[in-house]
């Protein structure tokens, strides 16, 4: 963290990137941190009866609802990416690849603010829901992995700036397959990581905080892969429902 900044990335650049990414994050978050703190404080939870009713819904119906919510959130991630300095300078092929491969990772990072660690519940469709609410999905392993990740990330107490820079760094992963110019992506990601390190250093965060954030990456990747596996299986069993999912959801996760 205390390494001098490389010559090709002066402090002014770092601060400019930080401002651009944080501004983009704040402009493109569905709920502000204050909104979520207020919602958590109000603590509206699904009653046992509401939970039972939701658990009795069909898998198709619950998949449909979740796909709708994820699709809505993806649009915010697209706008987040567009506002990151340098993203729109990438070729369109790489913009599409980074969004398809990384949008769910950004959502998983953002979701930790919607997680109530005291009650182990996640804000979903207006109230806080336990993992059991989603039983009808038939994806208990996926749902519990999402809740575990949210619990772990919420424990890190990321500031808006740290969350913005971390999610931008995840989105700008140069190791995504089929990238045309992975080196250009790598340079962009390196600057965002430097900005994150600088932000952590300036805020006096514990040295291991960055390591703890990076240690979540494998879990995020496995959740994204598990989501695709579950979607593939669901499509085999309910092809017509899968075909009726929102077009953007099918476009992002379809192939």
């Amino acid at each position: 963290l205390l390494e001098p900044l490389p010559d090709d990335c002066p402090l002014m650049d770092i601060e400019r990137i930080t401002q651009s990414v944080v501004k983009s994050h704040l402009e493109t978050s569905q709920y502000s941190s204050d909104d979520l703190k207020r919602l958590t404080y109000n603590g509206m939870q699904y009653s046992p009866e509401e939970t039972r009713n939701f658990q009795c819904e069909s898998a198709e119906s619950v998949w449909q609802q979740c796909a709708h919510h994820i699709t809505n959130s993806i649009q915010y991630v697209v706008e987040f990416a567009k506002r990151i300095t340098g993203f729109m300078d990438l070729c369109q092929n790489d913009q599409i690849i980074l969004l398809k491969a990384g949008c769910l990772e950004v959502l998983l990072i953002r979701m930790c603010r919607a997680f109530n660690a005291t009650t182990n519940t996640m804000f979903f469709d207006g109230k806080f829901a336990s993992a059991q609410l989603f039983k009808a999905l038939g994806c208990d392993d996926l749902v519990s992995a999402v809740f575990d990740l949210a619990k772990g990330l919420s424990r890190l107490q990321l500031t808006d700036e740290e969350m913005a820079l971390f999610s931008a760094a995840c989105l700008l992963s140069p190791d995504r397959p089929w990238l045309t110019d992975s080196q250009k992506v790598q340079k962009l990601q390196a600057k965002v990581y430097l900005a994150l390190q600088h932000s952590l250093h300036m805020s006096g965060a514990a040295d291991e905080k960055l390591d703890q954030m990076v240690s979540k990456l494998p879990m995020m990747k496995s959740i994204c892969n598990l989501h695709i596996d579950k979607l593939e299986f669901f499509r085999l069993v309910h092809p017509e429902t899968a075909y009726s999912f929102p077009p953007l959801y099918r476009e992002v996760f379809g192939s």
């Binding site: 649009q75 915010y76 706008e79 369109q92 913009q95 953007l248």
Partner: peptide, 20 residues
């Protein structure tokens, strides 16, 4: 382009935060 026309369109659109 055909396979990802929605993403292409979203990337081209200039959406203000208010519209978002």
């Amino acid at each position: 382009k055909e396979k990802h026309k929605i993403l292409h369109r979203l990337l081209q659109n200039s959406t203000s935060p208010v519209e978002l």
